[in-house]
């Protein structure tokens, strides 16, 4: 049972990897950006667990900026992905403009909340 699951797991990873390689590079850039954001968030959580949550507002703003960036990037990816049928008549420039606007609001709020 365990052997079959491990074999299945390996096969699974193989298929995942092969499917992923097929995605266009622009989407891969977005994915990289998302990973960077999530990674930074995890670092901050670990730091808070070690040091304690004293300037809690700074912690919140730091973590939420990372999470927010990740979420917005994922939204952009959804909108820009050509395989998504729901968004086929949405011009990518419009999607990008919305993304920029949302990020601006996010960072403005973060700056306010950080201090």
């Amino acid at each position: 049972m365990a052997r079959s699951t491990s074999k299945d797991a390996q096969a699974l990873f193989q298929s995942l990897r092969s499917a992923y390689v097929a995605t266009p590079s622009s989407l891969k850039i977005i994915d990289l950006y998302v990973c960077f954001a999530v990674f930074t968030a995890i670092i901050q959580v670990v730091y808070m667990a070690v040091v304690g949550s004293f300037p809690f507002n700074s912690f919140l703003s730091g973590v939420l900026s990372c999470v927010g960036t990740a979420v917005l990037a994922v939204c952009l990816r959804i909108q820009v992905n050509k395989e998504n049928k729901e968004f086929k008549d949405l011009p990518p420039e419009r999607a990008f403009a919305d993304f920029v606007l949302c990020n601006l609001v996010l960072h403005l709020v973060i700056m306010n909340f950080l201090g």
Binding site: Y33, A37, A41, Q44, F54, P55, S58, F59, S65, A73
Partner: peptide
């Protein structure tokens, strides 16, 4: 506060990352 430097660093790095990303995305 010195204790909060990582958070400041993270937020600013997010902003910088966002800026770089937009450049890359637009010109790639």
């Amino acid at each position: 506060l010195p204790a909060a430097y990582p958070y400041y660093g993270a937020s600013f790095s997010m902003m910088v990352g966002f800026f770089i990303f937009t450049v890359v995305h637009l010109y790639s």
